[in-house]
Write a protein that binds this DNA or RNA. Structure first.
Length: 263
DNA sequence: ATGCAGATAATCT
DNA sequence: GATTATCTGCATG
């Protein structure tokens, strides 16, 4: 479709040295490259700093897990959650202020075969939910994953880009002029962009038309539900479906304090 | 199309 | 011990 050309220029660190809720909408349409796969961001969520955003991992201060968010801007904050998923963020504001933008969904614009292979593979990150009636773990799932679903959701996006625990803290700011001839170039749109092997970079891409940007409450959180810091490109098929947070009690009888049996 | 339940482990109380 | 910035398959309309 879009035969338009994606700009291969890398975004400077200063782009991220702003409040996350300002960076977030500007990130729509940009392209995150890591290895052979590139994703054009279509949905993101901003998370604020200590004391100001109850839904943020940094709300209660610095811990080993969220330490990267207190580092310099432009780095990846990758965390593990629900015992099986990784989610990726881009750190905002200067050192010592913990905030970031969660990358919720995007369109795979390069390395689609590798992306599909990663999503189809079992045994890593996102695979089979309930091992119930699913076929053997031989790898392929029954049906082919539609293109638009490859990176539709934060955990899926992380799988597609190959972002794991070891990439937490990886600098996503790359000096394009530094790319060496030996560094594998990536085809993004119709142009080539050099990103050193093993590095990640955020490219200019085609910034979303401001008129097409929508915003609303963030997904899957139990606090600060009103803060409209989820941003997406209206009408884009790769935007994930909104899912409100649902508290789950593992066992009604297990809690020490019994719930009132009212309806 | 929408909704529910289960999976699974790091992190924090 | 509870919660979690989620995803998937199966059930139902």
């Amino acid at each position: 479709m879009g035969s338009g050309e994606l700009s291969p220029a890398a975004l400077p660190r200063s782009f991220f040295d702003r409040p996350s809720h300002e960076v977030a909408p500007d990130l729509l349409g940009r392209v995150l490259v890591h290895g052979p796969v590139a994703v054009r961001l279509t949905e993101v969520e901003a998370y604020g700093g200590p004391g100001e955003d109850p839904a943020a991992h940094t709300y209660r201060g610095k811990t080993p897990r969220n330490a990267v968010m207190f580092g310099p801007p432009g780095h990846l904050y990758v965390y593990f959650t629900y015992g099986m998923h990784f989610c990726a963020n881009l750190v905002c504001l200067p050192e010592d202020f913990g905030s970031a933008v969660l990358l919720r969904a995007g369109e795979v614009v390069a390395g689609i075969e590798e992306a599909r292979a990663r999503r189809s593979a079992t045994g890593n990150g996102t695979g089979e939910g309930t091992g119930k009636g699913t076929g053997k773990g031989t790898g392929a799932r029954g049906r082919t994953i539609p293109d638009r679903d490859l990176a539709r959701g934060p955990a899926r996006l992380a799988v597609v880009l190959g972002l794991l625990r070891e990439h937490n803290g990886l600098d996503a700011i790359v000096d394009s002029s530094r790319a060496l001839p030996g560094d594998a170039p990536f085809a993004v749109g119709r142009r080539l962009t050099g990103v050193p092997h093993g590095a990640a970079a955020v490219l200019e891409g085609l910034p979303a038309d401001p008129a097409s940007i929508r915003s609303g409450p963030r997904t899957g959180i139990s606090t600060a539900k009103e803060t409209p810091w989820r941003f997406w490109i209206d009408g884009d098929p790769t935007v994930s479906p909104y899912r409100p947070h649902v508290p789950r009690r593992r066992n009604a009888a297990a809690t020490s304090v019994g719930e009132a049996p009212s309806s």
